[in-house]
């Protein structure tokens, strides 16, 4: 069996004083793709933000190890440099910062951390254009301020481009298919599949099974009431699609 990449033990977290993640346990080994499915509002996105260290998301208990290191003591940027990448559901617009400028800062911050030489402008542009082409992102789009005025599909393609360039060891896809038409979803799914390998792991957070037809997970978990209530393989996703989440949601 492959070595564990991410080990979450008894994790508890709250947002604004409200307890959202409760005794959450999950281990993801190198090369595995896990999907977490669950009803809307169950706190699936909270889990992704907690793993990224977003300010305002408070861990109240448990531990998370990433490559054997204590993830929870790392800053947001340290986690990213160690290899965690979150495809966000709602990528933020940053007026005045061209996409290329943003990407260059990011890629060089991560390269510096990995003790790789920084890319000069020519090397960087070559890389970003090559990867951009695969995602249907042209030079014109790269010149625009990042995410500003982008359609939902363009935003997700930009997220996929960032991921392709930063080459994380662990990618979290938070409702990566929301707001996408089928063609855009295929493009994003292809970029995810291109990155799949023996070492790299992924966590797909989704409400619908749709994306999982294109990025086939090794494991599927049902998330309700702050933790995993059932685990299985890809067939579980189809079952959920047919039967819904009703049997997993506690009567309130």
């Amino acid at each position: 069996m492959n070595a564990p990449l991410l080990e979450i033990e008894d994790l508890c977290a709250e947002v604004g004083g409200k307890s959202i993640i409760k005794d959450f346990n999950l281990t993801i080994n190198e090369g595995e793709v896990h999907a977490i499915m669950g009803p809307n509002g169950a706190g699936k996105s909270t889990l992704s933000y907690v793993l990224c260290g977003k300010p305002g998301y408070k861990v109240t208990g448990g531990s998370v190890k990433f490559k054997g290191k204590d993830l929870l003591s790392m800053s947001v940027e340290e986690r990213a440099r160690e290899g965690i990448f979150l495809i966000m559901q709602y990528p933020v617009e940053i007026p005045g910062v061209p996409s290329t400028t943003f990407l260059k800062h990011a890629v060089n911050a991560i390269r510096q951390h990995r003790r790789q030489p920084e890319l000069d402008t020519m090397e960087f542009l070559k890389l970003v254009r090559e990867e951009g082409r695969k995602l249907g992102i042209d030079n014109e789009m790269l010149k625009r301020a990042i995410n500003v005025g982008f359609s939902g599909g363009e935003k997700k393609r930009m997220e996929a481009l960032e991921m392709s360039i930063l080459k994380p060891d662990f990618a979290i896809l938070d409702e990566a298919d929301s707001g996408l038409d089928i063609d855009a979803m295929k493009i994003v799914a292809e970029s995810v599949n291109r990155l799949r390998n023996e070492q790299r792991s992924m966590l797909i957070i989704t409400h619908f099974q749709r994306l999982l037809n294109y990025v086939v997970p090794d494991f599927v978990h049902v998330f309700a009431d702050g933790h995993i209530v059932k685990s299985g393989h890809k067939e579980l996703a189809q079952e959920l699609e047919q039967n819904g989440y009703a049997e997993y949601v506690r009567e309130k």
Partner: peptide, 11 residues
């Protein structure tokens, strides 16, 4: 700021 930091850019 969070978005940029989540891509590895220092604060």
């Amino acid at each position: 700021l969070f978005y940029m930091r989540s891509r590895g850019i220092g604060e």
